[in-house]
């Protein structure tokens, strides 16, 4: 790399040029590096984004359906603390690439299999946060609920769940960002998400790869900010002031 001022300016322009080329790739189709077919362009980018959102959304929805009731039940009963907490630690230690690879090697490729792998990835933060959220509820509030004659189910539904919901959404947010990031390697398992731009650079070229990186980064940020907004929306007003 040249040390002079001119060299630095050239470098800046070259870097900038690569990013504008990548944007051009998203907006306009071009011939694939391998020849023949047309790649890039808005409609393909939207297709891949949709596939990316579809597999991530499905995984998060299934993970919520499984982990939230389980976390509420464990938290309400005050049982299984070791399970609810250590599942997160174990989940963190298993690399997402290894998890996807394990599924591909042992179960096979395809949308359903990879959704299932992403569900496994998404469960630990949601389960742990639901459990912790319920356990954090002031026992006196629960006692007064019982005193008013609420059934155990009503205690969960009307006291523990509303007071834990902000913490639960914190867990869903962590999982969602993680799942969107991991869905980037789904093309290794035959699911064409935005990650295909990155992983198949021999088809899409360097511009396509950088375009894919930009789109995946924007998607992850969009998911993060959306869930942060939802989390704020669901935080009871009393808790917001305390925090």
């Amino acid at each position: 790399m040249e040390k002079g001022t001119d060299g630095m300016i050239d470098l800046h322009l070259a870097v900038l040029g690569q990013f504008t080329d990548a944007i051009d790739f998203i907006l306009h189709t071009r011939e694939a590096q391998t020849g023949g077919v047309q790649v890039g362009g808005l409609s393909q980018a939207l297709d891949y984004t949709w596939e990316h959102l579809k597999i991530s959304g499905a995984a998060i929805a299934i993970a919520c359906a499984l982990a939230v009731p389980a976390g509420l039940a464990l938290g309400h009963a005050g049982k299984g603390e070791l399970l609810a907490i250590s599942v997160s630690n174990i989940g963190r230690a298993v690399p997402s690439l290894a998890l996807i690879a394990f599924f591909v090697a042992y179960i096979g490729v395809g949308f359903t299999n990879i959704t299932f792998a992403l569900v496994l990835l998404a469960i630990p933060p949601i389960l742990t946060n639901t459990y912790v959220g319920v356990r954090q509820v002031d026992p006196e509030v629960i006692d007064s609920g019982r005193g008013m004659g609420l059934t155990p189910f009503q205690v969960v539904r009307r006291i523990e769940l509303p007071l834990a919901v902000a913490t639960i959404f914190g867990g869903i947010r962590t999982s969602a960002v993680n799942v969107v990031a991991t869905a980037t390697i789904a093309p290794l398992a035959g699911v064409l998400t935005l990650g295909d731009y990155i992983l198949s650079a021999n088809v899409y070229g360097d511009d396509g790869r950088l375009a894919g990186a930009m789109l995946v980064a924007l998607l992850a940020l969009a998911v993060e900010f959306t869930f942060a907004g939802i989390q704020r929306l669901f935080t009871p007003r009393g808790l917001k002031i305390a925090a």
Partner: peptide, 15 residues
């Protein structure tokens, strides 16, 4: 922290 690592690697690549 939110940026997926695979994306960040290739965003950094030109630099």
């Amino acid at each position: 922290y939110t940026l997926p690592s695979l994306a960040l690697f290739f965003l950094l690549l030109p630099i």
